[in-house]
């Protein structure tokens, strides 16, 4: 039983990170109808910036958190303004290709700006180990699960009750009608890119805290993408929950079937789910897939 519980807890911890990044995918898709293939790279860049702040400015957790969030907002806004906005109205395929190109550039930037060595993010917390009845968990892992749950609640409230959230939903539903109603689609898009960058960046920072920073970190995006598909590409909350499901499934497969199955399990799961619900567990039926 202890073996099972340990697998589930570890699965929830890594799944929460997938979930945060998956929510980043969904926020952009929901607002712009675009799949951002540079999501993993944006996550990685924010984590590297957090590490730079911790080593050059201050290792204080609040300084690092505020600095990383601001940096993620700026990163999201720059990408939206300089790269994505000129692509408005262009074919979806071309826009998706732009995000792929962006991914390659951001990936290479790691070596140009930082280096290829792995680094640890040390902010004085998150690395401690708590043993509960023989089950070991890092405090950072507990924190990321709690953060995901809090963000899920906050985002639900944001889309449900705030004017901006309703405006984003309106643009996602029909941007022309939204425009006629006085909603600026470009502003909504900019907000979506900034929000996506922050949410995914939080996932990246937690990953760096629990594991380490390395130029291979962008691969988190590849792991989080199935979570988005599973939860629903247009379902922000569903994507977060999809991350948890993928994390648990991976760990159970790795723990009970074998190491080799771990990486395959998430993808096997989305194939099965998509055969039953092609729009994902929480997604809406009429979405356009890329």
């Amino acid at each position: 039983m202890q073996y099972l519980i340990q697998l589930v807890i570890s699965g929830l911890a890594i799944g929460a990170i997938y979930g945060l990044i998956a929510m980043g995918f969904a926020v952009i898709y929901k607002s712009t109808g675009l799949v951002n293939f540079a999501q993993g790279e944006m996550t990685m860049i924010t984590a590297y910036i957090a590490w730079t702040i911790s080593t050059t400015v201050s290792g204080n957790v609040f300084v690092v958190a505020v600095g990383a969030i601001l940096a993620a907002i700026v990163l999201g806004l720059i990408i939206e303004r300089l790269v994505m906005r000129p692509m408005l109205g262009e074919p979806v395929f071309a826009t998706v290709m732009v995000t792929i190109g962006l991914a390659v550039i951001l990936r290479s930037a790691i070596n140009f700006i930082w280096d290829a060595y792995p680094h640890g993010l040390d902010i004085g917390m998150g690395r401690g180990i708590v043993h509960l009845g023989g089950i070991g968990v890092r405090t950072g892992q507990i924190a990321v699960i709690a953060t995901l749950l809090l963000l899920l609640a906050a985002i639900w409230a944001f889309f449900r009750y705030s004017k901006v959230g309703v405006a984003m939903r309106a643009v996602a539903a029909d941007d022309r009608t939204a425009l006629l109603m006085g909603i600026s689609a470009t502003r909504v898009h900019a907000l979506a890119w900034a929000a996506s960058s922050v949410i995914a960046g939080i996932g990246g920072v937690f990953f760096a805290l629990s594991y380490d920073l390395s130029p291979a970190m962008f691969q988190l995006g590849l792991k989080a993408f199935p979570a988005t598909i599973l939860g629903g590409l247009d379902a922000v909350l569903g994507s977060g929950l999809g991350g948890l499901l993928i994390g648990i499934t991976e760990n159970l497969a790795g723990g009970y079937i074998g190491s080799g199955m771990k990486e395959v399990a998430g993808f096997a799961m989305i194939i099965i789910v998509l055969m039953i619900r092609p729009f994902g567990i929480f997604g809406e039926r009429d979405i356009e897939r890329v």
Binding site: D212, E250, G255
Partner: peptide, 30 residues
């Protein structure tokens, strides 16, 4: 493990469960 894997929680839990006392970690760096 598959190249690119970053989380080894289930793998190391299996190692512990099997009672391994000497371990050859065949990873590269991370």
């Amino acid at each position: 493990y598959k190249k690119g894997q970053q989380d080894f929680s289930s793998d190391m839990l299996q190692l512990k469960d099997a009672g391994a006392e000497v371990f050859l970690a065949g990873g590269i760096i991370a």
